[in-house]
Design a protein around this nucleic acid. Sequence first.
DNA 1: ATCCATTTTAAACATGCGTTTTAATTTAAA
DNA 2: TTTAAATTAAAACGCATGTTTAAAATGGAT
Lengths: 215, 215
Amino acid sequence: MAKRITTQEKILNAAEALFAEQGFEQTSLRQITTEANVNLASVNYHFGSKKALIQAVMARYLEVFMPKLAEQLTVLNARGNFSTRDVFDCFREPLAELKQVRKHGPTLFLSLLGFAYAEIQGHLRRYTMEHFGEVMALLLDTLHLANPQLSPVDMFWRLHFVLGATVFAQVSGPALREIAAADFGEAVAADQVIDRLIPFLAGGLDAASHSSTVE
Amino acid sequence: MAKRITTQEKILNAAEALFAEQGFEQTSLRQITTEANVNLASVNYHFGSKKALIQAVMARYLEVFMPKLAEQLTVLNARGNFSTRDVFDCFREPLAELKQVRKHGPTLFLSLLGFAYAEIQGHLRRYTMEHFGEVMALLLDTLHLANPQLSPVDMFWRLHFVLGATVFAQVSGPALREIAAADFGEAVAADQVIDRLIPFLAGGLDAASHSSTVE
DNA sequence: ATCCATTTTAAACATGCGTTTTAATTTAAA
DNA sequence: TTTAAATTAAAACGCATGTTTAAAATGGAT
């Protein structure tokens, strides 16, 4: 009664695991096909190119995550009178929803997103902007409503600072957790990193702008 | 009376410019030697390998920056009674000092640091930790003194969130500045990104810890 | 001026990459 | 069962990389 796993799925599963661990550019098709026990050429047969494979891996998560996030943000906007913290909490549920895609979906997705953002200079940039664009704009508007004292351009920059910190925490998370465990004897689960991160991000976003703090 | 520029210097100058723009792995030795107008093999002759060249490029800045930073932090610790903002301000002077190394030294160095941190999974990690280790520990202690309400392990994580946001702002800075200019009609110089960043970071670091904000 | 170590040069090497090709095999419909 | 399409398989292609080799050129010291 075990579900038949197609070659495409075998490739996607092996690819996403290796991508999340090493990044896109550092992972070769030969690694992927070896791990998936399929022929090298099958990647180009089923997906056309490595670029297309990367997009397919991302799409599997984005198509679940993005609508959910947009929905949460829309609800919050309709409610009105909310804080920065409320905006960030909109991410929790859509992220948890990714467990349905894959067991460790939330963690995998954040790692993938991290590498995608890190390699945004390359071919992923256009694709990312196309799919992130409108949700990003909605997020930007929502954050602006939560922090009307900040100008839109200030909010733009701070949102990207937030993304940078998040992405980096995720990408270098394993290494940092290892160091933290060694230096403080305190093991931290991957999920708890986000709990540490959110107050930091909210505090940064809510801070007074530079123009009003210049001495 | 123009100072004689050696082949090694020509290589270092061309390499650092390309590294700061594209990252280490994305820059080939052929690009570097073409830009520097030297022979391809001269890199391996003078530096031994590409790895060693990368370290030489970083070392030129680290050897100036790190002692200056340690000095500033030591002075601040001796003074006592300081804020997070004071700690961050310790970075300004050592960074400005890099103009003596190179005209656009501060910007170049931050970009290089960003890529180094981003590629920390590779061979740069050990080298980075060796040279950053003790200064990082001093920085951590100093930040803890500025924020005694946070536990050391909390501070550890927040410091890395800070580094992540900084690094990312630098690495993806050019692309973001382009977008900001298009969307807001507001051109932002590279230096001003740091002015936007510092209040954000200080606000994040000073935020209440998660344990006291859990609902 | 000669000699020897240093440096520069051109060429080739070995390796890994994404992709393409061509044939074999499997699958499913007629 | 036959037939045609879809899939898998093995091999090679073309290209770019870091590195090495061996000869040529350079530059001081004797």
